[in-house]
Design a protein around this nucleic acid. Sequence first.
DNA 1: GAGCGTATCAAACGTTTGTTTGAATGTAAA
DNA 2: TTTACATTCAAACAAACGTTTGATACGCTC
Lengths: 212, 212
Amino acid sequence: MTHEAKTVSEQTRERLLDAAREAFSQHGFQGATVREICRRAEANVAAVNYHFGNKDGLLAEALNFAPLKAMQLANAKADGNPEVRLRLFIRDFMLMLLDETNGSLPCRIMARELADPTPALDKIVREAIAPLHDFLGKLLREIAGGKTGEAELRRCMHSILGQCLYYRHSHPVLQRLHPKLRYDHKKIETIAEHIADFSLAGIGYISGKTCA
Amino acid sequence: MTHEAKTVSEQTRERLLDAAREAFSQHGFQGATVREICRRAEANVAAVNYHFGNKDGLLAEALNFAPLKAMQLANAKADGNPEVRLRLFIRDFMLMLLDETNGSLPCRIMARELADPTPALDKIVREAIAPLHDFLGKLLREIAGGKTGEAELRRCMHSILGQCLYYRHSHPVLQRLHPKLRYDHKKIETIAEHIADFSLAGIGYISGKTCA
DNA sequence: GAGCGTATCAAACGTTTGTTTGAATGTAAA
DNA sequence: TTTACATTCAAACAAACGTTTGATACGCTC
């Protein structure tokens, strides 16, 4: 009874979380309304406050950084070549940000809340972004070599993250500029490949500058 | 009387516009409230609707793309070396996005509204972003040479804009990761220089790939 | 100074928001 | 079946929002 079948209460909890992830990733925390979330979850308006205390609690529980951490773990165990691992990281990260079929909405919620501080931003920074920066920083250190300064390396990291996040943040604009635009799996990989090529060349130049 | 001294009505109009630019760039269009704007402009709540019809009208008039266009015009007339002109563009763009003393808030409002469609987004795209893309596209074409494909060139443009916008979009997060962080004129130029170095190396690699 | 159009004001409007309430319903043990 | 608790529900709550109103004060022309 504690193990197998989910109680009906746990089912509505999960329906609420799913609907919340959808709504938050689409309209942001402020833009998404409790009523709309409950409607999509086929639950009563009071359900959010009963199960999660309030809207903030719903956001906190809707965030799930497991896919992001799993991605980093798998990457660390992959082929030892750091440049290939950077390519893999960029590809996986872009898929999380753009691929509709991926289902990793928490990553897209995160991206949305970067610019617009939310009650949950401290938790997001602490549990997701800081570890991500650590991971990517170490990976770039392997590629750039020990001579490259800490500040230069961090700027390279920002250059990579900036390129990736751009496609998510500016999607409404790019959609208006190129109405026929749609990101399928193939197109995402092409973009990821470009970012990797572009960035590896950039890192090579930056790290070479200080070594020369 | 039509030329020199501003009527008291025009003064409150300008106070409202200034307060609106401040509020929209800080809290976004949704987050900023008409009441807060009027309070900071020392005007009555009804002033917005009297002078601009409604909140949307206030946003539309608060946007001013003149600085952005002037920057592009000055850039086009500058030193003919396209690589130097790209460096200049990145520097000026970053100053608009980050420098507090610059006063080009419309640029920061624009950056904020990229991800969150607003009643004015269509106007922003048509009058500011599309021309900006044209300008930057042509500049990159000069640098990359005629052999580089249109798609590759556009992706390079996205790489550059992504790097620049990252520092604006992720400012709340970077602030939390490095609490001592503050962008002064000197620091912004250092970042702009990095982005230019990083990107020119990237463009060199991308354009070389297709020419080889 | 009278008259007129413009601009400002306090106050209220109608909605929408997140949240709370108390009754009704469901679930599971005694 | 009865009892006790957990969950759902319709309804209402208080607060905040953009907007409207009608009266008041101002600036200008005649």
